[in-house]
């Protein structure tokens, strides 16, 4: 994990350094004199060699002190920590729903493979996936919140419970529904791949019924690719939840980054990218451990 983290840090550093605009000019704004820009440059340490700047960058990450946002002057680490809960409140329920809803439905669909139901489900899900996530949110927000008033249109509160129960449901529901079709298709293919295996033929030769084979033998083997896939889920979940934050004005990490992009607030973008990369790596590690627990062929190193 360490070399990957080092790589991420290097990538972000060089990306902004080589391709980004001059931070001093951005910070100073439109009407700044040359001396003002110079002063800011010195303050930010931009007159030092790039190795020193890299060290400042790394130190900032390790100390969890990223300086201040160029726009709001708030400490970046503070911004991160205050926005994190909101993102988690949406993201975690989405992941849980995605996996635990899709799995049993996929198993059922795989069981009835080839039948009219299966083909219908496939056709419907292809169509459903061809409509942009945005449309679902726009229409969902309009119908369910605006027109029918089942959920609040936007907003966020202070108490975690209120957020979870009042403000989170609509976004979470929309995200889960949209991802349901592709997840089911994916899990269905895992199940189908397993049903073609030799050990299924052995199980039949032993006299097991089809449902028993599916539940006892196939499921456990299919869990292996499911778990591997959880790690790959994350980028999509983040993308979804970030969009939702923007739509529903939820004060989370995603919305913050979006604002930062529009305002060229480099420290915020850089810090969030690195920290979320770390988070992703940790989740991957956890999934890896789980994977080794489920598959006895893999030995612990």
């Amino acid at each position: 994990m360490v070399p990957t983290l080092a790589g991420v840090i290097l990538l972000i550093f060089f990306l902004f350094r080589a391709f980004g605009g001059d931070p001093a000019e951005i910070l100073a704004g439109q009407v700044a004199s040359a001396e003002q820009i110079e002063a800011i440059r010195r303050e930010l340490g931009l007159d030092r060699p790039w190795t020193a700047q890299l060290w400042i960058f790394v130190r900032g990450i390790l100390a969890f002190d990223f300086g201040r946002s160029w726009i709001t002057r708030e400490a970046v680490s503070d911004i991160f920590l205050t926005r994190l809960p909101a993102t988690l409140t949406i993201t975690i329920p989405i992941v849980l729903l995605e996996v635990f809803l899709a799995l049993p439905i996929a198993m059922l669909v795989a069981y009835f493979r080839g039948s009219l139901l299966d083909r219908l489900a496939t056709a419907l899900s292809v169509g459903a996936m061809s409509v942009s996530f945005l449309v679902y949110i726009i229409v969902g927000q309009y119908l369910l919140a605006f027109e029918w008033g089942l959920f609040p249109v936007q907003g966020w509160g202070d108490s975690a419970w209120k957020n979870l129960l009042t403000y989170a449901p609509l976004p979470v529901l929309l995200a889960a529904l949209v991802s349901l079709a592709p997840q089911i298709r994916l899990y269905r293919s895992f199940f189908l791949d397993e049903t073609k295996a030799d050990y299924v033929r052995t199980a039949r030769a032993k006299g097991l019924s089809e449902p028993a084979i599916m539940a006892k033998h196939v499921l456990r083997n299919a869990m292996i690719p499911v778990l591997t896939n959880v790690a790959l889920l994350l980028p999509g979940v983040f993308a979804g939840s970030f969009l939702l934050e923007i739509f529903f004005s939820i004060p989370g990490l995603g919305r913050e980054v979006y604002l930062a992009v529009n305002r060229s607030d480099y420290p915020v973008i850089q810090a969030f990218t690195v920290y979320l990369a770390v988070l992703t790596m940790l989740v991957n590690l956890a999934a890896d451990v789980l994977y080794r627990l489920v598959d006895p062929r893999i030995q612990f190193r």
């Binding site: 030799d198 052995t202 030769a205 032993k206 033998h217 083997n221 489920v294 006895p296 062929r297």
Partner: peptide, 17 residues
């Protein structure tokens, strides 16, 4: 009536003892 197959490695379920 029972059966034994050609490829024992794949004929056994890898995740069960």
């Amino acid at each position: 009536i029972s059966a034994v197959f050609q490829e024992p490695m794949t004929s056994l379920n890898p995740v069960l003892s």
